[in-house]
Design a protein around this nucleic acid. Structure first.
Lengths: 343, 343
DNA sequence: AACGGCAACGTTAACGGTAACATTTACAGG
DNA sequence: CCTGTAAATGTTACCGTTAACGTTGCCGTT
């Protein structure tokens, strides 16, 4: 591999001039620039990024921190983000957050080791790790969770209005005539308090709110079953929920993966969806369009979430404008999994 | 951030000794080691990886090159690989291969810039890029494609026996009594020649072989429809295939994503699966267990593929043993998408 | 002719580590 | 008491880049 010194030798100029050419500085004669660029191409030279990082104590990369164990939805967003970053001529580096770690400490480690110019958080929430996050000073973006309430000047966020969209989803059930509605997903604590960036809790609360507004009784003991966002968990939780309360006619699952698992569970229990029981999901994952029955769900605009997130980050890296918090419109997808309640 | 010099100053030893402690060398007194380690902890010092890389012209990282636009299957393997690498105390860096790039040039760029100690290729094939690949001298592993025939000394491979498994899948259809069988997936060229690491072609050929062996006629014009590995493509291709040849009673889709799209298409055409038409998939993606009907498919052992791949790579990095090519047993999953043919 | 200014380029000291080499110290053996 | 040896530690030359600074040579002024 050629180094900057080789380029200098071969081109007959000094490494200083070569460096200037590489970094696109003005004070180089056209002649020198042409010659040096020729040699660079000829030698197929690529600057050593370690040396660059060491010297500038910054890299040209963007780090993406993903919390997504088996989360199809986030993986699809990740892919779009990657492509989008590439389109802008930047390079990204993905760090997955393990079961036992938290996203902020993963990010902190990345900051120290990789010196990225910006960080994109995908999924997860920062609220628990306020002090640690404060150590991160480079521009950050949180996608799929709202960071407005956290008050970090360097953290933008792009999100779907989870509370409103969840209400929308449940109101479809209500509109169809359902009055015994169950909720699947989130944590046992999700019914209690709520931080602004706790997405599962927001969806659960949005659902409960619209039920209350419509005078529909909701008993946390009988009408709610928390579960992690995996099809298998959704499958199990759906069975538990219906065992607790066989009267339910409509189900709101806070994630499509849970909804799809639930549909399977209901079928295995001998119930037809939507004839015997209706199901609404949330996310609009790729497969929800091909499931049997097609899933009625809230489709998040993953392309806009990803694209706006990336663009905001790159903007703020270049011009250090201030952080923004934007809600991206969602789309209600009318599938085949909701019908009038039985009886 | 503290540097090695700070540690040296604070501890009263020279940077040389500090470096020795960091790198766990023997020739340091216990006293010095204790003192230095104390200061390191106190200052919460982490060696600058760029400087390290620059000096040693090597990194401590493993690069993962993924070809997987919307490929759920590979994404699940990727996750396991990541976790596995982490378990071994190593760190990984993921590079996605874009639409227009090829995996080898992405890898080559990574080698130049990131200086990884090893590369894991996930999906994709090397055969087209033999000369370029030859430039890569560090240990590599190819997962989900067989590199045995390529003859690279530094490239191990772990794969399912795609040809045999595809034959197995199709033989299930035959066993149920199907004699008019269609194939979905792969490229138009897949019917012609085949390189050892061209997975779609291997599956198509394996399927055709078992049909021939059983005296079942196969007309490429009427019984085959190539398509890319996305549910939407599978959906469209399935419709085209059945339009060309409405007599088909059994379908082999070379990927589950295609199979699931196809099932949806058949339903939309008024056909019941499996009563009117049977479908077998390949991969065993997470969702195939929850689809309606549950998909009959070949389940690849993703955990073994990932784990063995990672372990082989780390082994070869440490002890430079020679490359191996191993086939991981698959499992036939009897779902609900295959039945006796109609009539 | 002397000078200032400027464009173009060369030089060199970092950046934070590592490893080869040099030095010091302690102790054993003659 | 001197010497040899080995262990423990210090010193320093790099690794490839960048950026601050220094050096040229040329031009236009006075």
């Amino acid at each position: 591999m050629a180094t900057i010194q080789d380029i200098a030798r071969f081109s007959g100029y000094s490494i200083g001039t070569v460096s200037r050419v590489i970094n696109n500085r003005a004070d180089v004669s056209d002649e020198a620039r042409a010659k040096i660029e020729e040699v660079i191409k000829e030698q197929n030279y690529q600057p050593n990024s370690s040396a660059r990082k060491l010297r500038q104590s910054i890299s040209s990369e963007i780090t993406i921190v993903v919390r997504g164990n088996g989360n199809i939805f986030l993986q699809s967003v990740l892919e779009i983000i990657q492509r989008c970053i590439l389109e802008h001529g930047e390079t990204a580096n993905v760090q997955f957050v393990g079961e036992l770690e938290d996203e902020v400490s993963v990010a902190l480690q990345a900051v120290r080791q990789l010196k990225p110019r910006g960080i994109i958080f995908l999924g997860g929430s920062m609220d628990h790790f306020r002090e640690e996050f404060a150590e991160i000073t480079i521009p950050c973006v949180l996608i799929t969770a709202d960071a407005e309430g956290l008050g970090f000047g360097n953290l933008s966020s792009f999100t779907t209005n989870d509370r409103e969209a969840a209400a929308h989803a449940v109101s479809t059930l209500i509109w169809h005539g359902h009055r015994r509605i169950g909720i699947l997903g989130g944590f046992p604590e999700s019914l209690r308090g709520v931080w602004s960036d706790d997405v599962p809790a927001l969806r659960v609360l949005g659902a409960i709110e619209v039920m209350e507004k419509n005078g529909i009784p909701f008993d946390p003991e009988r009408d709610y079953e928390p579960c992690s966002p995996l099809a298998e968990e959704g499958y199990q939780a759906a069975k538990r929920l219906l065992l607790k309360n066989p009267d339910l006619t409509g189900i709101f699952a806070i994630k499509d993966s849970i909804a799809l698992g639930a549909i399977r569970a209901f079928r295995d229990m001998g119930l037809r969806v939507p004839k015997d029981i209706s199901v609404v999901g949330f996310d609009g994952v790729l497969y929800s369009k091909y499931s049997v029955p097609r899933l009625t769900t809230i489709q998040q605009d993953v392309v806009a979430l990803a694209r706006k997130g990336v663009e905001d980050l790159l903007m703020r890296i270049s011009y250090d404008s201030s952080a923004v918090h934007e809600q991206i419109p969602y789309r209600f997808v009318n599938g085949e999994s909701v019908a009038r309640p039985r009886d």
